[in-house]
Nucleic acid binder design. Structure first.
Length: 425
RNA sequence: GUGAAAGUAGCUCAGCUGGUCAGAGCACUGGAUUGUGGAUCCAGGGGUCGCGGGUUCAAAUCCCGUCUUUCACCCCA
């Protein structure tokens, strides 16, 4: 019986695996050079953990199971709750600020489509214990540091930045009642994804008065911070939020990455827990969904039973990123699935035992070495050596009688005869 | 959960107005090549044409159902 792969999963053949590792190694390298430490948690947790800060709809998108002890569990759809749990357990002994990163494998029972699968990898970086906007700047810097390290330029991607505080105070100042804010957020979040007339029509259902509705549209269209007070009116809270964004911009300029960024009031981001700076990374000119996003969520640890402590972070999945890098031809084509130092070939069948012996010796000295199981013609063996990406090929022929062998450099074709003992040192 | 498109070799696809329609390229294996790789040429293996039913003398081809995939909507931590 043939059993098909599960919907929304991927098989990683060696070449796919090389690409996956290339992406993930990049994430890790950039995290480490930005001063983050790696952590990980279990791949499943109590179901409750993921329901805590999310609604029922999100619970429906979980892969859940009941274990034999009757515990209700779920495969992790995100790692942030696990991180909060882990930090809360040791919060008093962890040196602040806490800068952690992870590349968890995550699961969501959504219907698969372009850039979205049921199993994927997501790079997470978080800074806990710093309420200064400097931490938000560092998160954004780290994100851009990676994206530019793989060759994406300000013409390929934009980091769209806003602030939940600004959004809340602006809407309040326009005259929107506080209890209506969240339903309005959901609409504003779609501002760039739906046609303007549909947006205005839906907006009119929520905000019947045309004056405030127009202000909201104007606010959404602003890309210049200084225009905001003219649109929404002056207010101390608007001021505070604007100052935060202004100093974020100053910091990103100092860090030399502001050319990747735009102020974008319509960036809201899905759920309720963001409390300050929010941002999303989008590909320029594509139909792709966001490559990544994040922001400040100062209530997170407290929500998971810990102390009130500032937090900001970012998540980036491998699906959309992979499509984008593919589109822009930024994935190296020569990614290798094997890395052999030596391939050992024999010029004659009778030296085959020697091949096995020398291969084993080389391996025990720490060299990556391989040989052909069938001692066919030398040309076949050399072909295998180049297919397997061997740097050098050792040819064992009659010279071995006097303890010598031929070493061929596969890149240059150059050959040298050396003592066997030299090679094994 | 809703809608649309597509399923033929490991991969990309041709064939589709029913009748040499079981095919190509790439990949794989072997040979040309018994001491020299990436090239070239030759040969070979590999398919229940997604599955089930119907129409017909005859179905990869037409019709119905079904499954899967992809894309979009919903949602997006």
């Amino acid at each position: 019986m043939k059993i098909p792969p599960v919907k929304g999963t991927r098989d990683f053949y060696p070449l796919d695996m090389a690409r996956r590792n290339w992406i993930i190694d990049g994430w890790k390298r950039v995290s480490l050079r930005n001063g983050f430490e790696e952590y990980d948690g279990p791949i499943f947790e109590y179901l409750k953990m993921f329901q805590l800060k999310s609604g029922d709809e999100i619970a429906e998108q979980l892969f859940s199971l009941t274990d034999r002890g009757g515990r209700e569990l779920a495969l992790r759809p995100e790692i942030t709750p696990t991180m909060a749990r882990m930090m809360n357990q040791q919060i008093n002994s962890l040196p602040k600020p806490i800068k952690w990163f992870s590349v968890p494998r995550l699961f969501r029972a959504e219907r698969p489509q372009r850039g979205r699968l049921r199993e994927f990898f997501q790079w997470n970086v978080d800074i806990i214990g710093v309420d200064d906007v400097l931490a938000d700047a560092e998160i954004i810097f780290t994100t851009i540091d990676y994206l530019s390290s793989v060759g994406l330029t300000p013409r390929d991607i934009r980091v769209k930045i806003s602030n939940r505080k600004l959004l809340a105070s602006a809407l309040t100042n326009i005259g929107i009642p506080e209890k209506q804010l969240y339903s309005l957020y959901a609409l504003l979040d779609k501002y760039n994804r739906i046609p303007p007339d549909v947006f205005e029509k839906t907006l009119a259902e929520q905000v019947p008065d045309s004056a405030p509705a127009k202000k909201i549209v104007d606010f959404m269209n602003t890309t210049t911070l200084s225009e905001v007070p003219e649109i929404v009116g002056k207010d101390p809270e608007v001021d505070t939020a604007m100052q935060e964004l202004a100093s974020l911009k100053d910091l990103l300029e100092q860090m030399g990455v502001w050319q990747f960024c735009d102020f974008y009031p319509s960036i809201v981001r899905g759920l309720a827990y963001y409390t300050g700076v929010v941002f999303e990374v989008h590909a320029v000119g594509g139909e792709l969904r966001a490559v990544g996003g994040g922001g400040r969520y100062d209530n997170l640890l407290q929500d998971f039973g810990g102390p009130s402590i500032a937090a900001t972070g970012m998540g980036m999945g491998d699906c959309v990123l992979g499509i984008l890098l593919e589109e822009r031809n930024l994935i190296p084509e020569d990614l290798s699935t094997q890395q052999l130092d030596y391939f050992i070939a024999s010029a004659d069948k009778k030296y085959f035992p020697k091949v096995i012996e020398i291969t084993a010796k080389l391996r025990r000295t720490g060299k990556a070495a391989n040989f052909a199981y069938k001692p066919t013609g030398l040309s076949k063996q050399l072909k295998q050596a180049s297919v397997q990406g061997a740097k050098k090929c050792i040819i064992i022929g009659s010279e071995i009688e006097s303890g010598k062998l031929v070493v061929k450099d596969m890149a240059t074709g150059e050959q040298k005869t050396t003592e066997l003992d030299n090679l094994l040192k």
